[in-house]
Computed example of a mutant assay.
Amino acid sequence: MLNIRPSLKLAFIGGGNTSAVGYVHFCAAHMDNKFQVVAGAFCRSAENNHETSQQWGIAPERTYLDWQEMVEKECDKVDAFVILTPTPHHLEVLQYLFSKQVPVICEKAMVCDPKEVEALLPFYSKEQFLAVTFNYSGYAMVRELKHLISQGRLGCIQKIHLEMPQEGFRRPPDIAGKSASPQAWRLQDSEVPTICLDLGVHLHHLSSFLLDEEPSTAIAEFSNHSQYPNIVDDVQMLLKYPSGIKGSMWMSKTAIGHRNGLQVRVYGDKGSAKWFQLNPDELELNYNDGRREILDRAGQCEYADQFRYNRMKPGHPTGFVEAFANLYSDIADNLFSYKNDTVQKSPYTFGLEHANAGLKLFSAARRSSISQKWESI
């Protein structure tokens, strides 16, 4: 007889029909039937809030305009709250939820800078369940790459290069006939520029995920190439890691021709690997004996051939939402264990310490952009 686990119940704070990420979270959470969104304070606009709840089948009595009222009324009815508001609002919400000691799933970036992490710590305990959604490591072939690195297939890793060029500040994307101009909060910078919160934390996450190592020093150049003054929209960084690995990061919102050019390249003394998000099911491998290989889910995968990564057979590419769903599946497994007082630490879910490491990196990068010197992280 099958042991069928009931779906965990979620309440969304933010993420309504005007959100950039809400619908993706909704789809990903439901994909493997491990979660069900049952309540929400989706939008400050009553009209948009109502439209979102109708579209997603949320009961009117569990649809709220005030997110704090929702937390008070739903904290004993749901298994976790999902924070999908703009990043500058996260600190207030996290402090409130942590004070209630309820499980939290938070869209990256967790908060805006290391100072906000310090302001969050008095409300945080080691028993607190927190999962920050760094979703790009949910791609099956990124996890295959991590496996290959850990098995020494590329030899001793020497270099890692990560880039995430986009064009949105120079050519706003046209989505369903509507131009998606930058949201107002994305046109303001503080200690850590918003581009680092939007794009950079993903690059940090992928580097740490693949290498199991944090960079120790960085040098960076911040630039403005757009029509929006006084904000950083292009970042180039060099990195050094304690083991001797060298790295680089490039992120941009003014790289015309790139919708989302996320790319990872890793070089060892035995081989190299390249993964490009626009071709997510393939991993390009090169070896020092001259062999070249394109590995996909139909090839000799040692990790990505698991059933959970093959909702449809190879030849039908998986994509961004499926990668997000893989992460939500991992979060569900961890949350279920947490609620049943059993120990399970997934290597694919990340919380406060990991998020803080990324913020410290980009705070050091900002110092470097001013000093024009290498800065310790």
Rank of each mutant, 00 (worst) to 15 (best):
E74A: 00
A29F: 07
K159T: 12
A220F: 01
E353G: 06
P242W: 03
S346K: 10
K73T: 12
N279I: 00
E92H: 15
P114L: 05
P60D: 14
M110R: 11
A11Q: 11
G57S: 06
C106D: 07
Y241G: 05
E191P: 08
W67N: 08
G40C: 02
G244N: 13
M1E: 15
L199A: 03
V142Q: 02
E293A: 04
C27H: 08
S272D: 09
H204I: 00
A220V: 03
Q95E: 10
W275S: 00
N279E: 08
L97V: 05
A80D: 07
L162F: 00
V82H: 06
K108V: 01
C27K: 13
F222H: 13
A357V: 04
E47W: 09
K108Y: 09
D333K: 12
A180G: 00
E72V: 03
H204Y: 14
L335Q: 08
S179C: 10
Q277H: 07
K246I: 10
Q55V: 03
S368W: 05
Q227P: 09
L283C: 10
Y136Q: 12
L148R: 10
V93W: 14
R292E: 15
A180K: 13
A28R: 08
V264M: 08
L361T: 04
M164G: 03
D330N: 15
A119D: 15
L283R: 02
R170N: 14
K246L: 11
C196H: 02
N224W: 12
G257R: 00
I331W: 06
A364H: 02
V117S: 07
L91E: 08
L262T: 02
A59T: 14
K159H: 15
M141T: 12
D330G: 01
S181L: 09
A180E: 13
V192E: 06
K274N: 09
A29H: 02
F307S: 14
E282M: 06
E163R: 13
R62D: 08
C27Q: 12
S125E: 15
M237K: 00
S368K: 04
T349Y: 07
T85A: 14
G299I: 09
F362N: 01
C43S: 15
H89I: 13
L283W: 10
E116S: 10
T342P: 14
P280G: 02
Q344P: 05
A140F: 03
G244L: 01
K270T: 06
